[in-house]
């Protein structure tokens, strides 16, 4: 987990400044410090969370930092709160997640003789490419297992949901916003007549707005 100390101090100063409203600051700082609460309802087993975290780190690889994606997704699944819709061809979110995690691990054990979480990165990515192309035939679960199997097409759909969930968690994390030096949080504090933004248009920046992160990957 990242901590306050790891955030760019100038971005932390922005969060603390009177350009950011109290409720926005509260939301951002809470997200930054999020850790598991004792007694919280949980939906996934420790083993399932391990597979999920490994998958999430393939979707959003981060050098030198990490976010506890599994905790965040588990909390949502335990609450039973979705995004307001789901693909009709998928079972409810928790059932879909459990079925997919089991299928992926079964596939890894069959193909590579080891659990998904223990695979080297290249083999993990290879597994994800199989899901993405709609070709994951994971086989039926062991007898006695309560998790329904997902078809290859369902796995492909679910992988889209996973990408969305993980990426949303990544992008909303204050450390990611700090890396971008995202200015949108600083819309002008608590008065009704907000200061907002004046310098709009191509290449224009506010006096207080630092230059955005230099692009490292010209396309």
């Amino acid at each position: 987990m990242s901590t306050i100390e790891e955030i760019d101090p100038s971005y932390l100063a922005l969060i603390d400044s009177d350009r950011v409203s109290a409720q926005t600051r509260e939301v951002l700082l809470k997200r930054l410090q999020s850790s598991d609460e004792p007694g919280r309802k949980t939906a996934l087993s420790t083993e399932e969370k391990k597979i999920l975290q490994a998958l999430a780190e393939c979707v959003v690889p981060m050098a030198g930092r990490s976010i506890d994606f599994a905790l965040s997704i588990d909390a949502r699944l335990a609450e039973g709160q979705g995004k307001g819709w789901r693909y009709s061809e998928l079972p409810p979110d928790l059932t879909a997640y459990r079925g997919a995690l089991a299928a992926i691990d079964r596939y890894a054990r069959r193909e590579f003789r080891t659990s998904f979480a223990e695979l080297p990165l290249e083999k993990k990515n290879q597994t994800l490419r199989v899901i993405e192309s709609g070709e994951m035939e994971a086989g039926e679960p062991d007898s006695g297992d309560d998790v329904p199997s997902l078809s290859a097409t369902q796995m492909q759909r679910w992988f889209q949901d996973l990408r969305g969930d993980v990426t949303g968690i990544y992008m909303s994390h204050p450390e990611t916003l700090a890396q971008l030096w995202y200015s949108g949080i600083a819309d002008g504090a608590d008065s009704a007549a907000l200061s907002g933004f004046v310098q709009l248009g191509l290449g224009k920046v506010e006096a207080w707005e630092p230059k955005a992160k230099v692009r490292e990957n010209e396309s």
Binding site: C58, V59, V60, P61, M62, N125, L128, E132, Q160, D161, R163, G164, V166, T167, G168, Y170, M171, T176, Q179, L180, W181, Y182, A212, K213, R215, E216, N217, S219
Partner: peptide, 19 residues
């Protein structure tokens, strides 16, 4: 992530272009 189908390093690299 959902619509362009990116994941892994290509996703993270592209997200850095946000501004």
């Amino acid at each position: 992530a959902r619509g362009r189908g990116l994941w892994g390093k290509p996703l993270v690299d592209y997200l850095q272009q946000y501004n």
